[in-house]
């Protein structure tokens, strides 16, 4: 099979032509970097997205800490992950990379902090 994809890994947004069969991605062209291969393979066989949002912090210098799923989760579970994180609250201090929710909804991906938040004051 053949098809066109837009690689969304970065803002360059390469238009990529791909060829694949039932089980494998066979070739891609027009991609500017190697990150496109994994992404296109995913789009065909198992579309995933990284979820980024922010959650509440208690006693921090900021009211929120930004977080992400360490690895992309199945696209169909993105809204469920958002729901799961809706009322999570953590205590300051929070370190960058700290695990906030391990293995969120059994996706195998940890939700981690993407910034530091110090204690208030």
């Amino acid at each position: 099979m053949k098809g066109k994809f837009v690689c969304v890994v970065c803002p360059t947004s390469c238009d990529v032509n791909a060829e694949w069969n039932e089980t494998e991605l066979l070739s891609i062209d027009h991609a500017q970097c190697k990150l496109a291969w994994e992404f296109i393979r995913g789009e065909i066989f198992d579309p995933r997205r990284t979820v980024t949002t922010s959650i509440m912090v208690d006693g921090g210098e900021l009211p929120l800490v930004s977080v992400k799923t360490r690895t992309p989760v199945p696209k169909a579970q993105v809204l469920a992950v958002m729901d799961r994180l809706a009322d999570v609250m953590v205590r300051a201090p929070v370190d960058i990379g700290e695990v906030i929710v391990p293995d969120v909804l059994g996706t195998g991906s940890d939700v981690v902090a993407t910034r530091k938040v110090k204690h208030k004051g």
Binding site: V9, C10, P11, T12, C33, L35, T50, T52, S66, K68
Partner: peptide, 13 residues
């Protein structure tokens, strides 16, 4: 807070 920064220099999103 979204991802997609650094793909050219750090080869990561």
């Amino acid at each position: 807070i979204h991802d997609g920064f650094g793909t050219k220099v750090f080869e990561q999103a």
